[in-house]
Nucleic acid binder design. Structure first.
Length: 820
RNA sequence: GCCGAGGUGGCGGAAUGGCAUACGCAGCGGGCUUAAAACCCGUCGCCUUCACGGGCUUGAGGGUUCGAAUCCCUCCCUCGGUACCA
C-alpha cells in the first residue's frame, strides 16, 4: 500500500464533509423519533450569539456530540438540541458603539453561527432550535415571571443593589466577582434602588441537597459554599436609652460566648444607627457612615485593611450578664448578612479581637484553654476552648455541650432562639437595559403593581429605539411604549421599563426544547413526561453558582406548579475544562493566541479538528491547543482511509488461525476499551486505542493471512467505533464499502469478554522488586507452575546463586516477586 | 488565608498499589521519488558500557509496603474557586 494513491482516491475532507452534512440535513437523520426506544436527553449549554464560534465552543460541543451519537448508536432515542441565548448586553453595546440595531446585530450573528455550527457536523436537532430573543420564546419567559409573581416568588423591593457603571445596570450577587462585574470587569458600587427579585432563598435548604443527581463534587461544594448555611441563634439586646423601645437583634454561631460579648457593632447602614447615636457623637458617626459609602466594595471586603469604626455614645444591655456594653458602628459588619449587627466577643473571635485591640475595648475570655492562661491578657483570640468560665452558672460546662445548653437557656428566658442564616440572597432579576425580556408588569397609581394579563402576552420589545452614549435604557425614554392603560381601572399607567436578567431566559430553556413551537403553554405535559429531566448536561464550570443554581431553582418552582415531576432538572453534569492557547493562557485577541476554528476546519477538516481537540488530553482538564499536533490526527485519518479503502485480498487463500484469533481478540479488546472510554468522556484514550487498532489493521493488510470476512468485520468495526468521533469520514467509507446508509443508524458493536481475553500472558519476574526477566505462560497457569518456571530461568538462577528465597509473591497473570 | 484540581521525556499526555513514559507531536536515520509533498519502516528519558548489561528517573524530603507516579506525613510550585458571612 506504499504510495501510489491517485489524488482522487485520497481522503479529501472538503467535499466529503459538505456532502454528508447536506445529506444528513435533508434526510433529517438526527430528528427524534417517537418509537419505543429509551429516551436520552443530552444537552450542551447553548451559546450566546457573539458572532463567531470560537475554539471554546468546539471544545464544549464536539465531545458532547460524540456522547449523544454514542447513545444513539447504543439504541436510545436521543434529543440533542441547540439554540441561542440571544438577549444580553453585547448586542446593546454594539448598538451604542456602532449604531446598529441590537436585533439586526444579534440575528446576523445567529445566521453566521448557524453555518459554523453546521460545519462542526454535530447531530443537533435543528428543528427544535430556540432563540431566547424571539417573541414566541420570551412570551413564555414573561409567563414564568407571572407564575412566580402569583406565587409570591417574585417581588419588588428597595435594596442596596450592585450597580455596574460600565453596564449601567444593577447585577445579582452572583454576577459580582471579587467586587467586579462578571461581564465587563468594572468595579461595582452599591446603590439604593427599587428592584425586582426572585425568592430563591425560599429554596435554600432544598438547593443544598444534591442527593438526587450525579454532579461533580466541585460544583456541589461551590453551590454549598455559595448558599452558606450557618446554624446559630438570634439574640435580642435591649438598648439602654430612655424612650427607645427597639431592640438590637444579632445572629451568632456562638451563643455560648455571650458572657464574653463586651461590645456591639452595627453595620453603618443599619436602620437603628440614627435612632441610637448620642448628641455628642452625631458628627463622627455621620462622617463615618458617609465615608463608608465612598469606599468601594472591593476595598471594604479586603481582609488586609485595618478595622475602623466609631462609638455611637449608646449602650446596650447584655441579656444574660446584664452588663452595659458600648454600641459601635464599623464597616467590618455587613448590612447584607444576618441581621446587620453583631455581639462582639473579642476573646473568641479574631476580627472582634483586632477591633477591640485597636479601640481598647474590654476582652473577657469565657472559655479556658489547655495552653493559654486566661487570667492574663490574651495575645490573640481563640475559637475553641475547653470549658466555660466567667459565665456565671454555666461555668464548667464543656465546650462540646456549651452551644446547646446556652441556646436552650436563652429560649427559656425568651432572650433569643435557635436560628439558621444563609449567605444566599434573593436573586435580583431586573436590569435597566433594552435588549432583554420586558417585565410584564404595569404600575398604576390607583391599583399599584398590576401584572399584565396572560392573554396580553407577549409584551413586545419596541423596535427602532434610540440609543444614547450615556448607556441609559431606551425603554425609559420611550413614552409611547410605557404609557399604557391599567388593565384594572383603565386609567393611564406606566409599564415597567426594566427588563429581565438573561440568566432567567436560560433557567428554563431545557424545558422549552421538548416542545419548542407550543403556542398555548411553555410546553405540553405529555412531552414533559416523555423527555424531562435532562439525562446528561455538559458545559463549563464558570456557571457553578449562576446558571446551574438558577436553573435548579426554576425547576423547583416548576415542580411546585405541577409542571414537572422530578426534583432536579439535570441528572448528570459533566464540566469540560478550558481550552487554552499554545502559550498555555486563555485564548484572547490581546494575547494573539486565538485559534480560529473556521481556519482549522478549512485546512484539516471538521473530523480532524474534533478529534484533535479530544485527543490533546482529558476533557475535564482542558489545556493548551497546539495546531502543530494536527498532523498526527490527519495522518491517522489518512491511514484509516487507506486501510478501509484499499482492497484486501488473501491471495494465498490460506488462513493462519493464530493471526486470525489475534486480530479478533484485538478488535474485541478495542470495542471494550473504546466503549468504556467514551462512556466516561475519556476521548483521548479512546482515540489512542483506535489509532492502535488502525496500525494493527495496516500490518494485517500488508501481509494478509486472515480470511476475508474477518477482515471486513474488523474494518467495519473500526469505522463504527470511530463514527461518533469522526462522523463524516466514517460515513463516506461506510458507503464506499457498500454498507447501508447511514453508519450513524447502525447499532454500536458488542464485544465478547471471552474472545477479548488473552490466552498467553507475559509474567514479569522480579527479585526484590526489580524486574530481572520475563516469561510467557498460558493464561490458565497456577501459582506453583509460575514459581517453578521462574526459578528455572537461567538468568534468575544466576542472580540468585545459592540464596534461598524468603518469600515469593505472585500477582496472578502479572508478576512474580522473589524476595531474598 | 481557606477550599478544590494538578506537577510524569524537548512538547501534549498514558498508567490510580505490580514492566513508568501507552498514543501522538517534534527530532534523528532510512525507504519510495528526477525532486518535493504525501506515504511507509526504524530510532528516540538520563548516566555508564565497544557490547551484553548495570545504575538512576514521575516537583522536594520522609514514611508505609515484597513492591509506590499511585497510599500517608511535611514542604515547594502552578491553575481554578472563594474571601471580614458573625
Amino acid at each position: 500500500m506504499n504510495g501510489g494513491n491517485s489524488l482522487s482516491e485520497r481522503y479529501q475532507h472538503e467535499s466529503i464533509e459538505k456532502k454528508w452534512q447536506e445529506r444528513w440535513e435533508s434526510d433529517a437523520l438526527f430528528r427524534t423519533s417517537s418509537d419505543n426506544k429509551k429516551k436520552w436527553y443530552a444537552l450542551t449549554m447553548f451559546p450566546y450569539p457573539s458572532g463567531d464560534l470560537h475554539t471554546g465552543h468546539w471544545y464544549a460541543m464536539a465531545p458532547s456530540d460524540v456522547s449523544a451519537r454514542l447513545k444513539r448508536m447504543q439504541g436510545h432515542n436521543v434529543l440533542f438540541p441547540i439554540g441561542f441565548d440571544s438577549f444580553g448586553l453585547p448586542a446593546e453595546n454594539a448598538a451604542i458603539k456602532q449604531n446598529v440595531d441590537p436585533r439586526t446585530w444579534t440575528y446576523n450573528n445567529i445566521e453566521r453561527m448557524h453555518g459554523q455550527l453546521r460545519a462542526m457536523g454535530a447531530s443537533f436537532n435543528w428543528e427544535r432550535e430556540i432563540i431566547t430573543s424571539d417573541p414566541d420564546y420570551y412570551q413564555w419567559t414573561q409567563w414564568w415571571f407571572l407564575q412566580l409573581f402569583n406565587q409570591d416568588l417574585a417581588y419588588q423591593a428597595e435594596a442596596a443593589a450592585n450597580w455596574c457603571p460600565g453596564c449601567q445596570t444593577v447585577l445579582a450577587n452572583e454576577q459580582v466577582l471579587n467586587g467586579n462585574c462578571e461581564r465587563c470587569d468594572n468595579v461595582v458600587s452599591k446603590r439604593f434602588l427599587k428592584q425586582w427579585f426572585f425568592r430563591i432563598t425560599k429554596y435554600a435548604e432544598e438547593l443544598l441537597d444534591f442527593s438526587k443527581m450525579d454532579w461533580p463534587k466541585r460544583i456541589e461544594t461551590m453551590q454549598t459554599n455559595w448558599i452558606g448555611r450557618s446554624e446559630g441563634a438570634r439574640i435580642s439586646f435591649d438598648i439602654d436609652i430612655q424612650n427607645v423601645s427597639e431592640k438590637i437583634e444579632v445572629f451568632t454561631t456562638r451563643p455560648d460566648t455571650i458572657y464574653g460579648a463586651t461590645y456591639m457593632v452595627l453595620a453603618p447602614e443599619h436602620p437603628l444607627v440614627k435612632t441610637i447615636t448620642q448628641k455628642a457623637y452625631i458628627e463622627d458617626v455621620q462622617d463615618y457612615v458617609e465615608a463608608t459609602t465612598r469606599i468601594s466594595e472591593i476595598d471594604r471586603l479586603s481582609t488586609e485593611r485595618k478595622k475602623t469604626g466609631v462609638f455611637t455614645g449608646a449602650y446596650a444591655i447584655n441579656p444574660v450578664s446584664k452588663k452595659r456594653v458600648p454600641i459601635w458602628i464599623a464597616d467590618y459588619v455587613l448590612s447584607t448578612y444576618g441581621t446587620g449587627a453583631i455581639m462582639a466577643v473579642p476573646a473568641h473571635d479574631e476580627r472582634d479581637f483586632e477591633f477591640a485591640q485597636a479601640y481598647k475595648l474590654e476582652v473577657i475570655p469565657v472559655f479556658d484553654h489547655e495552653k493559654i492562661d486566661v487570667s492574663e491578657p490574651l495575645e490573640a483570640a481563640f475559637t475553641t476552648g475547653r470549658q466555660m468560665v466567667n459565665s456565671e452558672h454555666f461555668n464548667g460546662t464543656l465546650a462540646t455541650e456549651a452551644i446547646k445548653k446556652v441556646t436552650t437557656y436563652l429560649e427559656e428566658q425568651q432572650l433569643g432562639e435557635e436560628s439558621i442564616t444563609y449567605r444566599l440572597r434573593d436573586w435580583l432579576i431586573s436590569r435597566q437595559r433594552y435588549w432583554g425580556t420586558p417585565i410584564p408588569i404595569i404600575h398604576c397609581e390607583t391599583c399599584g403593581i398590576v401584572p399584565v394579563p396572560e392573554s396580553d402576552l407577549p409584551v413586545l420589545l419596541p423596535e427602532n429605539v434610540e440609543f444614547t452614549t450615556d448607556g441609559k435604557s431606551p425603554l425609559e425614554q420611550l413614552q409611547e411604549w410605557w404609557l399604557v392603560e391599567c388593565p384594572n381601572c383603565k386609567k393611564p399607567a406606566r409599564r415597567e421599563t426594566d427588563t429581565i436578567d438573561t440568566f432567567v431566559c436560560s433557567s428554563w430553556y431545557q424545558m422549552r426544547y421538548i416542545d419548542p413551537r407550543n403556542k398555548t403553554a411553555p410546553f405540553a405535559q405529555e412531552f414533559a413526561k416523555e423527555w424531562l429531566p435532562v439525562d446528561q448536561y455538559t458545559g463549563g464550570s464558570e456557571h457553578a453558582v449562576m446558571h446551574l443554581l438558577y436553573t435548579r431553582f426554576f425547576w423547583k418552582t416548576a415542580r411546585d406548579l405541577g409542571l414537572v415531576d422530578a426534583d432536579e432538572p439535570m441528572l448528570r453534569l459533566f464540566n469540560q475544562g478550558i481550552i487554552l492557547g499554545t502559550d498555555g493562557n486563555r485564548m484572547s485577541k490581546s494575547r494573539g493566541n486565538v485559534v480560529a476554528p473556521d481556519q482549522q476546519v478549512e485546512k484539516y477538516g471538521a473530523d480532524a479538528f474534533r478529534c484533535q481537540l479530544m485527543f490533546i488530553g482529558p476533557w475535564d482538564q482542558g489545556g493548551p491547543y497546539d495546531p502543530k499536533g494536527m498532523p498526527g490526527i490527519v495522518r491517522w485519518l489518512n491511514r484509516v482511509w487507506n486501510v478501509a479503502n484499499h482492497s484486501y485480498t488473501n491471495k494465498s487463500e490460506s488462513t493462519d488461525p493464530t493471526e486470525q484469533k489475534n486480530l479478533e481478540r484485538t478488535v474485541h479488546q478495542t470495542i471494550a476499551g473504546v466503549t468504556e472510554d467514551l462512556e466516561r468522556f475519556q476521548f483521548n484514550t479512546a482515540i489512542s486505542k483506535l489509532m492502535s487498532l488502525t496500525s494493527t489493521l495496516g500490518k494485517v493488510q500488508e501481509n494478509p493471512s486472515i480470511d476475508n470476512s474477518t477482515w471486513h468485520w474488523a474494518i467495519q468495526t473500526l469505522l463504527l467505533l470511530m463514527a461518533p468521533l469522526a462522523p463524516h469520514i466514517t460515513e463516506e467509507l461506510w458507503e464506499l464499502l457498500g454498507q447501508p446508509y447511514s453508519i450513524h443508524k447502525q447499532p454500536w458493536p458488542d464485544y465478547d469478554p471471552q474472545i477479548a481475553a488473552e490466552e498467553i500472558l507475559q509474567i514479569v519476574i522480579q527479585i526484590n522488586g526489580k524486574v530481572r526477566d520475563k516469561i510467557e505462560v498460558a493464561a490458565t497457569i497456577n501459582k506453583d507452575d509460575v514459581e517453578k518456571r521462574a526459578l528455572q530461568q537461567d538468568r534468575i538462577k544466576e542472580l540468585l546463586l545459592d540464596q534461598t528465597p524468603k518469600k515469593i509473591i505472585y500477582v496472578p497473570g502479572k508478576l512474580i516477586n522473589i524476595v531474598v
